[in-house]
Design a protein around this nucleic acid. Structure first.
Length: 547
DNA sequence: GCCGTTTTCGGCCCGACTGTTTTCAGTCG
């Protein structure tokens, strides 16, 4: 059976083809359906089996029919027919920055160009001269874009944990340059999407020119792609595009809302506004010429009688209706976290490092801190912290902070059996030898599943965690649940664990990104194991030995 | 092709920027 991702690509492909064929509204309809499927947390096949495809936003009679055909046969006649009408290279042209469907169609129909390479040849041969709307400057841009596309294919999306430190540096750089009053990040970064295609920065400033100049001169900026009175677009050395916009303070909320998106969320808001005789744009909410809101996001939402909606769930997946009914979930906050359950130290960590970590936990106000004292590595090796270090963490008496021990093992044995060390609880991880969950539920102390990522592994381990009463860790990277996995876990009534960042100074993005993923999945405090009270979490831990 | 507390037909977010334009079209987000 085809995967959701294959359906996403199928409908995107149809949209591109329809675009080139000159269709007006169908392409957007297929893109809408494609985005909608992309944000599903369940297989299309399962939804189809329940006869609920029409509940997916953007799916109507025609697209439901096409999904069913695709699920049943693995292909789609309609798509195959469209592909016969358009040379494959014409769709490739759409990927060239600055070239859209109108231009691609004209190159195809007028000089008869059927792909990027042919277009480059046609330009060199002067075949575009005299084409209306394509003067020397435009042709030069296209030529440069074609060359750039050939040199570095796919300017793909960046994982958010990779983009995170880049974004922090850009913000810090702009602040240091001066002239900046408020500065915030928007776009899919703010919505905590797993990957970002670009970064959106929003600034208020009395001196936009000064800010743009400073932005252009940041060390990571490779080229300035465009610059106007209110926005500047640059490309960073590693290829990421960044948009910087300067807005007036009284419009900051409207602009932040607008540039945070998502597109579908904004379109929905706008149609609500229209129904009320209001107009929303990035400058504010207007009744006629009168601005009625715009300084803060909450103000903008309030004009539509909506509560402020957290950015992580602005995907037009029902959050607007929920806000209208006053039924938005109260999403987990950083300050809800009561402790850390998965703190790794270096294999040769000293007692001093234990103390430093405990200090960090105290600074965050955590009520418990579980150190992994022995662990099985991904390739089946075994590591135990130095005896003096383990003895030291047992001896620590820190008022208000309960220190615990965890042992991290593969799923093969009864958890913890191989370890000579007492453990308050067990962390289970898939290993190279045994990536699948054990058939029997674990016996003994409470269990946290960590280092699980990837769609199929996540599915299996969520099912196991459910039967075992275990929790699963959320966060960035291939070894933790992303927002889709977190939602699946939540829907299976499996508790989540969020990293606090304690004990891992390198992992600044980890804590923030994990929290974003959890919120994106609609997670509330009660879904998170390490947001319960310290007493509740540590109740099952072994009694402390006397010092 | 989708969608509906104004609609089952007639709409479909809206503005910045660029280049090529004598008033606008295309692209992008």
């Amino acid at each position: 059976m085809p995967t959701n991702q294959e359906a996403v690509e199928l409908f995107q492909g149809i949209a591109d083809l329809l675009d080139v064929l000159g269709e007006r509204f169908k392409p957007e309809a297929y893109r809408r359906a494609s985005r909608s499927i992309e944000s599903l947390t369940e297989d299309l096949g399962a939804i189809a089996a329940r006869n609920e495809l029409r509940t997916v936003p953007g799916v109507g009679d025609a697209i439901e029919e096409k999904i069913r055909e695709f699920l049943a046969t693995g292909h789609l006649d309609y798509y195959d027919r469209l592909r016969k009408e358009v040379p494959p290279g014409i769709v490739e042209l759409l990927k060239i920055p600055g070239l859209g469907p109108k231009s691609a169609r004209r190159f195809w129909l007028e000089p008869g160009v059927e792909g990027p390479a042919e277009l480059a040849d046609a330009i060199r041969a002067g075949k575009l001269e005299g084409m209306k709307g394509f003067g020397p400057k435009k042709v030069g841009q296209i030529q440069a874009a074609l060359a750039a596309a050939g040199a570095s294919p796919a300017g793909g999306r960046l994982p958010i944990e990779v983009a995170y430190p880049i974004a922090q540096r850009l913000v810090a750089g702009l602040r240091a340059a001066g002239g900046v009053e408020a500065i915030e990040l928007a776009g899919s970064f703010r919505r905590a999407r797993e990957s970002v295609g670009d970064l959106d920065l929003l600034v208020t400033s009395a001196e936009p020119e000064r800010v743009f100049d400073a932005f252009s001169r940041l060390p990571e900026v490779r080229e300035v792609r465009l610059r106007g009175g209110t926005k500047e677009t640059v490309v960073l050395t590693q290829g990421l595009q960044v948009d910087l916009r300067v807005v007036a303070p009284e419009a900051f909320g409207a602009a932040w809302q607008y540039f945070t998106g998502s597109k579908d969320h904004n379109v929905h808001l706008r149609s609500l506004a229209r129904d009320r005789g209001l107009k929303i744009n990035e400058y504010g909410v207007f009744r006629g010429d009168e601005r009625v809101a715009g300084r803060t996001e909450a103000e903008v939402y309030a004009t539509l009688d909506l509560a402020w909606i957290p950015p992580e769930i602005r995907e037009d997946r029902g959050e607007i209706d929920a806000a209208a009914r006053g039924e938005l979930p109260s999403l987990v906050e950083r300050t809800d976290l009561t402790g850390e359950l998965h703190c790794h130290l270096a294999p040769a960590a000293t007692p001093r490092e234990v103390d430093r970590t405990i200090e960090a936990a105290r600074a965050l106000g955590l009520g418990y801190l579980g150190f992994v004292v022995a662990w099985e590595t991904a390739d089946g090796g075994r590591i135990t912290l130095p005896a003096a270090t383990v003895a030291h963490l047992d001896s620590v008496r820190s008022p208000g902070l309960r220190v615990g021990r965890a042992v991290e093992v593969g799923p093969s044995g009864p958890p913890g059996e191989w370890s000579p060390l007492r453990a308050d609880y067990t962390v289970v991880r898939p290993t190279g030898k045994t990536p699948d969950p054990p058939t029997d539920p674990p016996k003994g102390p409470p269990v946290l599943v960590a280092h699980v990522g990837g769609e199929s592994a996540a599915r299996k381990w969520i099912a196991w965690a459910r039967s075992a009463g275990a929790a699963i860790e959320v966060g960035p990277g291939a070894e933790r649940l992303d927002s889709t996995g977190a939602r699946a876990a939540r829907e299976a009534d499996v508790r989540l664990v969020l990293p606090t960042g304690v004990g891992n100074p390198e992992a600044d993005p980890t804590r923030a990104v994990a929290l974003g993923f959890a919120r994106r999945a609609g997670t509330t405090k009660s879904d998170v194991r390490n947001a319960a009270s310290a007493a509740e979490v540590t109740r099952a831990w072994a009694p402390r030995p006397r010092a």
